[in-house]
Amino acid sequence: MTTTPTTQADRVALVTGASGGIGRAVAERLAADGDAVVLLYSGGRQRADETLAAITERGGRAIALRADVADETEMAAAFDRAEQEFGGVDVVVNTAGVMVLAPVAELDLADLDRMHRVNIRGTFVVSQLAARRLRSGGALINFSTSVTRLQQPGYAAYAASKGAVEAMTLILARELRGRDITVNTVAPGPTATPLFLEGKPQDLVDRIADLNPMQRLGTPADIADSVAFLSGPTGRWTNGQTLYVNGGAA
C-alpha cells in the first residue's frame, strides 16, 4: 500500500493542457512549490517545451509528454511514465479543454462532438486513471467554467460540457471515500490568456473586465494560486467542491 509523501519535494503533479495559458501557469506554480511536474500537451509542443525550459532553468524537475486526454491508452502511458520518472503521482490537474461558441440553432454538431470528446470523455478518462493511481494524500483538480452560472448566449454547448465535468468530479469525491484523496473542480471566470484575448477589441475586453467587482480580468496566476491551494496541505479540508475563481462575477 502506498503512503503519503512526507515532503513537498516528494510530490509529483501531472498537468494536462500544460501548453495553454492556465496550464502553463499551474505547472510553473506547482514546480515552484517543489513538485516534480509531468507536462502533458496535445498540439502545442513548442509552448510545452517553453514551459519545460522555464521550470528546469529555475531548478525544477519536469518532463513534457504528448498525450490525448480522451485516449485511455495514451493517458495510461503518461501515468506509467510519471511513475517511472518520479515514483508515482500525487496531484492531477486537468486543464485541457476545447471551447467553440455559437447559438444552439447554429452550432455545427461536429464541434459539439469535439467538445464532448475532450471536455467530457477526456475528463472522465483522466479522472478514472487518477482514481486508480493517485497515492494516498493526493488531489485531483478538474476544470469547469463560471459560464455554467451566467447563462450567456452562445455558450450553451460549452457550458453543458463543463456542467458534466462538475457532476462527475463531485460524485467521484464521494466514491473515493476512505482513500484520503481530495477531488475538486476549479471554475475560472474570464482570464487574460492569449486564447481569450485573441480577436477581441479592447473595448470588449474592458466591458468583460468590468463585469466583476474587482473590475479586471483574472490572470493565469490567479487560477494557479487556487490550484496550489487545493492541491497543497492547506487545502485538505476542501473536498467535493466547485471553486468559482472569477473575482465575484457570478
Rank of each mutant, 00 (worst) to 15 (best):
T242N: 13
P153C: 10
R216Y: 05
Q84Y: 04
A78L: 00
D10A: 08
L39H: 04
L172I: 01
A221H: 06
V89K: 00
G163Y: 06
L140E: 07
K162Y: 01
A130M: 05
G122R: 08
A157M: 05
A18W: 02
N239F: 00
L107W: 02
S146R: 00
L217H: 01
Y244W: 10
K200D: 01
T7C: 09
L39V: 02
V69P: 11
G34R: 07
A130S: 13
V147R: 11
G23D: 07
M99D: 14
S19F: 10
L195C: 11
E28S: 12
V92W: 05
A54R: 11
F86W: 05
D222V: 08
P5Y: 08
R45V: 09
G60Q: 07
Q46V: 14
R179W: 07
T2L: 15
R61S: 14
T238G: 09
Y158W: 03
G235L: 09
V165N: 07
R11E: 05
A173W: 03
A53V: 02
R236K: 14
T148A: 09
A159I: 03
I223L: 15
G232Y: 10
N94A: 12
L204P: 13
A221N: 00
R132P: 10
A13L: 02
R58P: 12
P190F: 00
